[in-house]
Design a protein around this nucleic acid. Structure first.
Lengths: 138, 138
DNA sequence: ATACAAATTGCGAAAAATTTGCAATTTGTA
DNA sequence: TACAAATTGCAAATTTTTCGCAATTTGTAT
């Protein structure tokens, strides 16, 4: 069992949530790519009703398993699994491609400092960069 | 005329967009707070049809005047005026309060570096921190 | 000023996205 | 294995967003 799966089950148990096959399939699907739209989820998990998908997305958000991203100016809402090492996203304004990147210690540290200065206890953060990807620069 | 308003008009002209009173009202409203939901906009701009509000939000996003934020796990989509000095947001996971903060040179520089390393030409970015605000810590 | 072409608006209706109630099924626990 | 509680699927309701089109408004060139 992958460490992400172990962690997933542990978080679910901590929150008194049943581990159903629908939830497992959703979690695994979310692990496969850095960002995915709700529509893609509903289409690619055809054995689940859309109501179930929506309910479980909301649950996963509430207990911190996924978070919502707003990538481009015209893009749909997307979801990303927070159990990835990469929390941050860079998206191309032209072709829409999304690349995830690893935490950057300098940025993480700065975020801590800024949050504390404003009186917040930081819990989570999200950084999205928009720009032109290599192939769209040509 | 405020410098923001001047810049707004200039960006609008560059994009061959008419400066209508609906768009001016929308822009001014977006300037008043760090983040605002679409519903609040529609309710607070009662002299505009909701179709107009939606169309102009889309326009403003496309030409870079506003950007979308996804603040809390349960929060609605919000919009923020990019002409503010503060681009970044910190939101309280408990009470939903949103605080904007100024650019941080260390973070900005790091973002440039990371983007270039991944082959992107960065155009815009967005950083959102979630945590517990001072009053909700008690 | 005035007139004109093109862009924008308001309206109503359509389409898309999300949520809800409830009976049937599934889950974890004892 | 049996039970209580949680979850699912389904259909319908609700909410959010988009669209077509006639009427109005805007910027520009007289």
């Amino acid at each position: 069992m992958s460490p992400e799966l172990t962690r997933f089950k542990s978080v679910m148990r901590q929150n008194n949530c049943f581990i159903t096959k629908q939830r497992l399939a959703l979690f695994k699907y979310l692990q496969a790519s850095p960002a995915i739209s709700i529509n893609a989820l509903i289409n690619d998990l055809p054995n689940q009703d859309q109501a179930t998908v929506y309910r479980n997305i909301k649950l996963f958000e509430r207990i911190g398993i996924i978070s919502r991203l707003q990538l481009g100016w015209n893009s749909k809402l997307e979801l990303s699994n927070t159990f990835h090492d990469h929390h941050h996203h860079m998206s191309c304004v032209k072709c829409g491609k999304v690349v995830a990147w690893e935490e950057d210690p300098t940025i993480e540290l700065r975020i801590q400092t800024v949050a504390l200065k404003l009186g917040f206890i930081p819990q989570d953060h999200q950084l999205e960069i928009r720009g032109l990807c290599q192939s769209c620069q040509k």
